[in-house]
Structure formats: structure tokens, C-alpha cells
Design a protein around this nucleic acid. Structure first.
Length: 577
DNA sequence: TATACCGCGTT
DNA sequence: GACGTACGCGGTATAG
């Protein structure tokens, strides 16, 4: 029987890479806790540190905590390694209730144990820093945290087994340390290149601004939808199209302005200016503030946010760095950590469509993937009555592709018509789109059956689940509100697909991390963007890493058909994507 | 200052 | 009346 130990780090900040460890609370049994204070900032080598090193280094322990991704990094930064089996109450609550918007300890304590915990702010009182708080106060607070965490652990553990999410939890708890390592690794950003890109975009935006506003009305704010309404629809008297927003203005979204841009240069320039300003205000600052200690960017990779099982990324969000639009040049700034390193980027090819093939067991789709047939071209053949796959042109393939993806998202006739119009540059009516949808399901009958079955299952059970048993409640599936009901039906279909792909990615990440450690490789996993992984690799490990990453990703799960990975090696993210 | 909404980047 | 999943985040407008 392994010993269960619950820990919680108290720090003088929330940024793992700059904060100092003030102390660690430890609980082993209910209503019993210790607080190990560090007398001074960064007193590495002190008695407390060596005590913690010895204690937490024991691989035979079960180490329980709340949001251990944070604690693991702080401890590591102070030279303390945790080697036991990790359990995390935040992750536990997430796999049981992914729809809950927050999984904070104090909240869970209230929900699961009906206990009102002392808040951090109250504990701090008027003290400016944690180092000024009396040890007695700190001890009470910290030990309450571990005590509650331990009780929540014992409370949720049986529920996870009863709910059938034991396997998913087992996967997720292993991911905690992996994400901690990834965040800690960080991403190197070429600041010199970033600055030169910023300079160029700044110049561009000034030129555009001058052209749009000129010396006419210098006080106009081109960020304001209100001002743009005035500028376009009153001052330039462009006939407005589209509908008004709740605030009483006409929509001036990209969608609307794109339609006007063909006839009005000013609108075209406005769109260009907007795109440029978006990069300048959102992405450039996000990449500019490197951690002074590591000289890298350390984002948060969030494990307990999405309702589908995907990971999310924040502070900054590196999952929405442009890859197609004007800002895609920023990806050149994502570089290896040193001259002797390269980046490896690895993408799952068509993973969501493959998952759909597996979930539906559709013979046409399965057969296509087994024989290496391009599924988008296959769809084009079936829908457009083309006999040979070689005769499908690129436009037809694009149409089919948007259909394949639209289906995954549960797109309706209206949305598909919109998408088709954008792809083909010709107007499509919702009626035409509906015919195409009908034709799609007539050709992929098993997909249609699968969709109906997923909706039925959700209706009966109140939740939908992935191939590996990650569950997501769909409370509104039987709602009287038809909008809510329609949305729920889309979720019932989309979540198993998106979520299964996410499960596979999580498995791949755990397995790759395990191999990196086992083989004592210097390569680091540094980023994940849903179906893509990014690695920082010493040049002498390129060959072994290419093989390892491909193997672990392609074999992360056996789902009945092959998973395929596109892999590239290069000197920046733009090159390897 | 906090919240809501718009708009937009990724998958 | 809306119509495509899942997010994070910058900006403006509005309420308090």
C-alpha cells in the first residue's frame, strides 16, 4: 500500500518562473497537517529544502495536490523533484464536471464538502507580502488547503470510478507533470526579428490610416464600430448591407466589409488596416515579454478548461498565432533554443475525419483511409458525380473539404451556403446547400446513422462521450428552447469527434514525455496546438526524435485505422508547420 | 472598475 | 430569430 501525501506550495506570486517558495504544507491524514516554512527567500540548501527533497523524491508516494502543475514547477525551480504518483483534485473535478467554469480549491471545498475555506486575500490581511505574514497564520491557511484537498481527493476518487471515467482520469493525471515540464521549457522567440516585423507593420498602418482618414477627420477612432458606421455609411454614404447589432449600429465585421470592399477602396484599406492593427495590438505584445530569467516565453497550457477535452493556452495564447493571415510571418520568430538546435513540428493528418470514420464505421470512409485515398477528393467524386478521383480539380476538392469539415461541426444549410459562396466565389442558396447535405448523407449513410445515434444517446443519457469515455453533459438536449436543442445536437455530434482527437493527443504527449525521460534525451516538447506538437531538438537528436515522435503519435491509440503524422524539421515555426 | 458585447486569430 | 466546434484576448460601450 502506497502512502498518500497531500502537498501545497505557498509562494510570493503566481508566476511560476519568478515567484519564490515561502513554504510547503503537508497533510497525510484528515485534520493533520504540517507547514514547512522557508525562512528566507530562495534559501536553497537550507534544512527545509533538503527535508522536502528527501520527502518528495520518494517514488513510492502517492502525491495529491490541487493544480499540481503549478507546485511541480515551483518545487523544481527550488531544486525539489517530485517522483511519486501524481493525483490532482482540480483534474479530478474536471473529468467529472468539465462543464464547470471554475475548479478552484475553495469552490470545490464548498461544493463537495460544504466547507467555507479562508480565502488567500483574507489570510493576507493588510500584509504587503507573504513574507510578512506570521507563520502561525500561514500554517493555519496552508494546512487547511492540504486538508481540504485531501478530503476532496477521497471524496471524488470513488465517484470517478463509478462514473466510468477512471481511464480518462488516469490519462489526465499523468499529463499534469508533462504540461508542467512543457511550460517550464518555454519557447524561444527571436526578439530582433519580432521588432523588425513590428516596425514594418507600424509603418504600414500609418500609411493606411493616412489614406483612410487623411486630413479629413483626425479625431476618428478606427477601432470603434460606431465611428466606422459614421465614416462609411454617413460620410462616404456607402449603402449599408447586413443587419444592425444590438447596439444599434450596422455590423462592420470582416464578413460584411469584405462584400463592400470590391466596390470601395476605402473599405479594402480599412480591412487591411484592421488586420495589421490586430497583429500589432494582440500578437506582437504577446511575444515581446520574455521571462528575464530564462529569456523565453512561458505560456500556460490549461488542462481543465475546455468542455471537449482539448487543451487551451493562455498568458499568452500561442494556439492562435496566425498561420494563414498577414500575421503568419510571426511564426518565423518562434526559433530553436540555441544554434545547435532545430524545431520539429508534427501534425496529425486529418485526425478528426479519421475519428469520424471510426465512430461511424462508415465503409466508404474506412476504406478510403485504409487505401490512402484522399477523402476530400472522394467526397467530391460522390457529390459531384465525378467518376475518377484524378479528375477532381482543386476547387472541387475545396468544396468537398468544407463539406467534410462542416459536417463535423454540425453546420446547417445556411452556414454551408455561406461557406460554399466563399470557397467558390459564387452565390449559393441555402436550398442548394441543403440538397448537397442530403446528397452527402445519402452517400455516407453510416455517418448519418452515427449522427442520429449520437444525438439519441445524448437524449437518453444527458451526456455525450468520446471513444475513450471522456464525458460531457449536454443538459439542454431535451430543452423546450429549440435554439438550445439544436446547439445541443451539434455538440452531441461534435464533442465525440473533437474530444476523441484530443484524447489521442493527450495520450501521445504522455507517451512521448515518458520516452524522452527514459531515453535521457535533451529534446523538449514545447507546444501543442490541438493536432500539432512542437519540439526543440539538439541537432544530434534529429533522427531519433523524428522516429520517436512519429511512432508515439501514430501509435498513441489503436482505433482501427492508421493515424498518420506529417513531420517537418526546420529553423523556425513557419518552416515546420 | 466590472461586465457585456463585438470582432478576430487558431483548429 | 438564428443559423459552425472549441478557445483567449484586445478594444469599446455601458452600468455601477
Amino acid at each position: 500500500m502506497k502512502k498518500i501525501i497531500c502537498i501545497d506550495c505557498e509562494t510570493d506570486g503566481l508566476d511560476v518562473n519568478t515567484c519564490n517558495l515561502a513554504g510547503v504544507a503537508i497533510s497525510i491524514e484528515k485534520n493533520q497537517g504540517w507547514y514547512v516554512p522557508l525562512e528566507k527567500k530562495n534559501k536553497v540548501g537550507s534544512d527545509a529544502i533538503s527535508f522536502l527533497k528527501d520527502l518528495l523524491g520518494n517514488p513510492q508516494l502517492i502525491v495529491v495536490g490541487h493544480n499540481l502543475k503549478f507546485d511541480l514547477q515551483v518545487l523544481k525551480n527550488h531544486g525539489i523533484q517530485v517522483n511519486g504518483e501524481i493525483h490532482d483534485t482540480m483534474v479530478m473535478d474536471y473529468v467529472l464536471s468539465p462543464q464547470r467554469k471554475k475548479h478552484g480549491l475553495k469552490l470545490l471545498s464548498k461544493i463537495h464538502l460544504n466547507y467555507d475555506q479562508l480565502s488567500f486575500d483574507k489570510m493576507m490581511g493588510n500584509h504587503g507580502s507573504i513574507w510578512e505574514v506570521p507563520i502561525k497564520t500561514l500554517t493555519k491557511y496552508a494546512c487547511e488547503d492540504t486538508d481540504q484537498t485531501l478530503q476532496i481527493f477521497h471524496h471524488l476518487n470513488p465517484r470517478i470510478q463509478e462514473s466510468g471515467v477512471g481511464n480518462i482520469y488516469d490519462l489526465d493525471r499523468k499529463l499534469v507533470a508533462v504540461l508542467a515540464r512543457m511550460e517550464s521549457n518555454g519557447v524561444a522567440i527571436d526578439q530582433k526579428l519580432l521588432k523588425s516585423i513590428a516596425k514594418k507593420l507600424q509603418d504600414d498602418s500609418l500609411v493606411l490610416e493616412e489614406s483612410i482618414i487623411g486630413d479629413l477627420i483626425p479625431e476618428i477612432n478606427l477601432n470603434s464600430t460606431k465611428d466606422i458606421n459614421w465614416l462609411l455609411f454617413e460620410h462616404y454614404a456607402i449603402p449599408p448591407i447586413g443587419k444592425k447589432t444590438k447596439q444599434g449600429n450596422y455590423s462592420v465585421s470582416k464578413k460584411v466589409l469584405s462584400k463592400l470592399s470590391a466596390d470601395h477602396l476605402i473599405v479594402k484599406e480599412l480591412l487591411e488596416l484592421r488586420a495589421t492593427k490586430k497583429v500589432l495590438s494582440t500578437f506582437i505584445p504577446a511575444l515581446s515579454n520574455l521571462n528575464p530569467l530564462t529569456n523565453k516565453l512561458h505560456c500556460s497550457i490549461n488542462q481543465t478548461v475546455t468542455e471537449t477535452g482539448r487543451l487551451s493556452c493562455s498568458k499568452p495564447n500561442l494556439q492562435n498565432i496566425p498561420s494563414r493571415t498577414i500575421g503568419k510571418m510571426l511564426r518565423q520568430c518562434f526559433v530553436p533554443s540555441s544554434k545547435d538546435h532545430v524545431l520539429i513540428g508534427a501534425d496529425y493528418s486529418n485526425i478528426e475525419l479519421r475519428v469520424m470514420a471510426v465512430l461511424s464505421q462508415d465503409k466508404n470512409l474506412l476504406n478510403a483511409y485504409k487505401n490512402g485515398i484522399d477523402v476530400h477528393r472522394l467526397t467530391a467524386c460522390k457529390l459531384l458525380g465525378i467518376k475518377n478521383i484524378e479528375d477532381v480539380d482543386d476547387m472541387q476538392r475545396d468544396v468537398a473539404k468544407s463539406l467534410n469539415f462542416g459536417l463535423i461541426y454540425g453546420m446547417g444549410a445556411h452556414g454551408l451556403a455561406e461557406t460554399l459562396s466563399n470557397v467558390t466565389k459564387k452565390q449559393h442558396t441555402p436550398q442548394q446547400a441543403q440538397e448537397i447535405i442530403d446528397s452527402y448523407f445519402a452517400n455516407y449513410t453510416d455517418v448519418a446513422k452515427c449522427k442520429e445515434n449520437l444525438i439519441y444517446q445524448a437524449t437518453v443519457k444527458g451526456y455525450t462521450e468520446t471513444l475513450f469515455g471522456r464525458k460531457r453533459p449536454i443538459p439542454d438536449i431535451n430543452s423546450n428552447d429549440s435554439i438550445k436543442r439544436q446547439m445541443s445536437k451539434r455538440l452531441a455530434m461534435n464533442t465525440p469527434i473533437q474530444g476523441t482527437a484530443a484524447d489521442i493527443m493527450r495520450m501521445a504527449m504522455v507517451n512521448i514525455d515518458q520516452q524522452l525521460t527514459k531515453q535521457k534525451l535533451k529534446s523538449k516538447m514545447i507546444l501543442t496546438v490541438h493536432d500539432e506538437l512542437l519540439f526543440d531538438v539538439p541537432k544530434h537528436e534529429i533522427t531519433i526524435m523524428e522516429e520517436l515522435v512519429r511512432h508515439e503519435m501514430e501509435n498513441a491509440a489503436q482505433i482501427g485505422i492508421a493515424l498518420e503524422v506529417d513531420l517537418k524539421t526546420g529553423n523556425n515555426w513557419a518552416e515546420v508547420h
